[in-house]
Amino acid sequence: MSASPAQLDRLAYRRHQTLLSVLVAAASTLVLGVLLVVAVTGAPGWDRVRESFLDPAVARESLPDVLRGLWLNIRLLFFCAIGALTLGLVIALLRTLRGPVFFPVRLLATGYTYTFRGLPLIIVLYVMTLGLPGLRLQGMPSTLVLGGTALVITYSGYLAEVFRAGIESVHPSQLAAARSLGLTYRQTMRFVVLPQAVRRVAPPLLNDTVALQKDVGLVSLAGPIDAVRAAQIHTAETFNYTPYIVAGVLFVLLAAPLIAVTDWVTLRAARRQS
């Protein structure tokens, strides 16, 4: 069956409109780009800024050290993300337990989320990396492990609340359906509530992981050299800020895939809702 003249006309009109909007977008992007370049490079101090922030020689020289530092960031991110997600989920589950036996557990879990969401990360870091070793106990782990633990403690407080929001967003009728089939509370959580809850809060969970990626570098306050700290050391030697730009670009590149995944998951979740 062939389309009616009216439908053909509609299709032709839409094609024309699409072409037009692509051309307009290209033109406006070009104009804005040229304006930005002219404004920045035409500024009176542009040459001095270029020398101290965008020196190719300095960039090349600092790159190996900054990369070494970034490797530390990546390793820390990997283990801290797993640790914080796991601990966060456990705390969220403890907060949802009902019954008088679990009162102290609930109280502890609630206190935990209140305390570590309120306490600045840097203070937790100092207490863990400088305070704890001061006790001179046997078998004290390395500064890196202690710093990582501080990150896990702080971030699990946030992630626990995200998980809890997800758990509470599952409609009570789902619980009723599961319990009426004879599933226990634990089975209901595991097979019915959590799968739905985690899917729903995946975007904010990943969002917090992106934030964690930038905060893992703070362990350098206690000694270990991450990418930003490596850049700082180079800058202190040369009085040239290019290493910071190098580190910054690497951080953005590292975050890009994680952010892309977050966007994709969010989009998929939105599609599912409709």
Partner: peptide
């Protein structure tokens, strides 16, 4: 005991 609800309550996932 089996129960069937007005709003079905199937598990969507």
């Amino acid at each position: 005991i089996g129960i069937v609800f007005q709003a079905y309550n199937l598990f969507p996932h």
